[in-house]
Amino acid sequence: MSIDNQVFIQNVIIGLTVGGYLALIALGYTMVYGIIELINFAHGDLFAFGFFISLTIFAEINPEIPLHGSDLYFTLPAVALLTMLLTGSLNLAIDQIAYKPLRKAPRLAPLLTAVGVSFMLEAIYAIWKGPIQIPYPRYFPKEDYMENEHVISFFSKLGMDITEWRIVSFTTKDLFLFGVTIPLVALLTLFIDRTRIGKAMRASAQDREAAMMMGINVNRIIATTFFVGGALAGVAGMVWGLYINSGRFTMGFEAGLMAFTSAVLGGIGNIRGAVLGAFIIGMIKAMSDSYIGSEWTRVVIFGILILMLVFRPSGILGSTQSIEKL
């Protein structure tokens, strides 16, 4: 296979991994927007919180690097659950303290408060871990499947010699990232589609007052939304830390902007839209980084966002909010 094609395949893999973690963050944006119509600017910083808190928990446990045996099969999921619990609780607390008193205030008030919370969190991370690039130890064992005997022999039976594909790599880390993000996204979709709470969420998103009149405890639904959104962002932060092994206190802002763009691209308030948007943005980012230059990626992503909003403001799959309502 030619080098160009190999580069392309590798970019697709990168795009999918980026899309995977962005999807987890974008879901939180879109759920909160769907219910209380708030662009939760602090949401990206919860992703960063997931990164930092899981790092701290790992440091406390101090397992052998890389994880193996029981550490890999029990400690890792336990840390993930604890990270989700803590990040979800943080998001819930932020909502109760900062946004809840402003439910009836003008729209600008909670929006700016969210920005305030975001800056506050970033300042706290900078104090907590230092305003520098933080290394995340390589806890997750890395093995390239392209060098695995079984994979090589499997492909050679199909008549392909993948040892020649020197540029392409697909590691255990990639698989781990997909293995966490895709089931979680599917689980959340099922949760919203099939459960009673999910139904109540959809009802609250459609018409909060009507939902209240039907006996739905909207406050509890909003709290649940913040908790679930925060938990997903938290686990995304942890998985991304294990994957990329580095981060800094502003990482939430960057990731948040891209995830938010994904949510808007797919149609804000739309769960499937957020996931689709995240994978599209992930692909665009990977392709732009590789073919145009990473310094132009922001321009490309935001350019696409502007064009999308101008020509189809409801996003690819359609927003649950009509523009006129805003």
Binding site: I39, R107, T261, F302, L305, L309, V310, I323, L326
Partner: peptide
């Protein structure tokens, strides 16, 4: 000009995007 048809939050998003594009450019 492109934001004239948009309202509220959508306008905020487009201006945010321009605000990110200009320093990057």
């Amino acid at each position: 000009a492109p934001t004239l048809r948009l309202r509220g939050d959508y306008l905020a998003i487009v201006t945010l995007a321009f605000g990110e594009i200009i320093p990057a450019l």
